[in-house]
């Protein structure tokens, strides 16, 4: 079982993760991450490197995608998280599908499709974050545990090709940088919580405001999956390090206490169990 961490805008380096995580998710092309330059440092610190190709692929990207995959193949890379099916097709053509980990954010919600993608030769799949604990367990059990689970950190709520920030700034005559690394916060007119919106050259991303940290459930799911992902996107560095240290020491006897301490240590943060107990099957 591995713990892999992403480093987007959290001021952490691979050296910080030494002894706390097993791998790091980096990216360059076709990714919201732009930190592949940390590859060498990650390897020097004993971390496995996972590449994220999380952005959608357009026709004009295909040639570059092939080149990128051919370069990845020559590196010591433990896995490639991907979202667009073009990556699977091109990787299959190059005989490197066993490096792939299918992570379409929201679309992998059942055992049938998870098993289907595993049959295509990918090494693992990442089920949707909006599944309940029982649904995740079912998928893990039905697919031999060949799944990665994103259990920690903020969740991505939406990805768009639209330039949400640039468009609004233009509309409202606001002079601000829509590509500010940390993004901006939005609050629905009748609610209190704020959500982070980050815009890059290719997309806008909306994150939840809370930080998933299901300690007890982590212990239950640990033996059932292949890797656990900690999304570090735009996260307070100290929070992430605290959680990683907790996970080193976590057991069934101290999980609740450590979770309580986490909240007390960072009272401004909202730690939740994400969707593990929130079934989102309501209809209008």
């Amino acid at each position: 079982m591995n713990k892999v961490v992403s480093l987007l805008n959290n001021n952490l380096t691979p050296a910080d993760l030494k002894g706390l995580a097993d791998g790091v998710i980096l990216g360059s092309l076709f990714s919201r991450y732009d930190d592949l330059h940390l590859y060498k440092e990650a390897r020097e610190n004993g971390l496995e490197v996972y590449i994220s190709i999380d952005q959608m692929i357009y026709e004009e990207d295909l040639e570059l995608l092939r080149t990128y995959l051919s370069v990845i193949r020559t590196k010591e890379v433990a896995g490639v998280y991907f979202s667009d099916l073009a990556v699977l097709r091109e990787a299959k053509a190059m005989g490197m599908q066993d490096l792939l980990i299918y992570d379409p954010l929201t679309l992998l919600t059942n055992s049938l499709d998870t098993a289907f993608f595993l049959k295509q030769g990918v090494q693992s799949c990442v089920p949707a974050r909006e599944l309940t604990l029982e649904e995740i367990k079912t998928i893990c059990e039905n697919t031999g545990g060949k799944v990665d689970l994103q259990l920690f950190g903020p969740l991505i709520m939406a990805v768009s090709r639209r330039k949400y920030l640039q468009s609004y700034f233009d509309y409202a005559g606001i002079e601000a940088d829509p590509r500010a690394k940390e993004g901006y916060l939005i609050r629905e007119a009748n609610r209190r919580e704020r959500y982070r919106v980050v815009e890059n050259e290719k997309e806008s991303i909306v994150y939840t405001n809370d930080f998933a940290a299901p300690y007890k459930e982590y212990l239950q799911l640990l033996p059932l999956c292949r890797r656990v992902i900690l999304c570090g996107d735009n996260v307070n560095r100290e929070v992430l390090l605290h959680v990683l240290k907790d996970l080193q020491e976590l057991n069934s006897g101290n999980a609740e206490e450590k979770r309580r301490e986490l909240q007390e240590s960072f009272p401004e943060e909202t730690f939740t169990e994400a969707y593990l107990y929130r079934k989102t099957n309501l209809r209008k």
Partner: peptide
Amino acid sequence: ANYSGRCTLSNYMTLRDANRGGCAQSC
């Protein structure tokens, strides 16, 4: 507004699953 299917605004804000016919059009 978002890539169809890759949006859980509705799930998160209203517990309605946009991918199972419950989209609250939170966008």
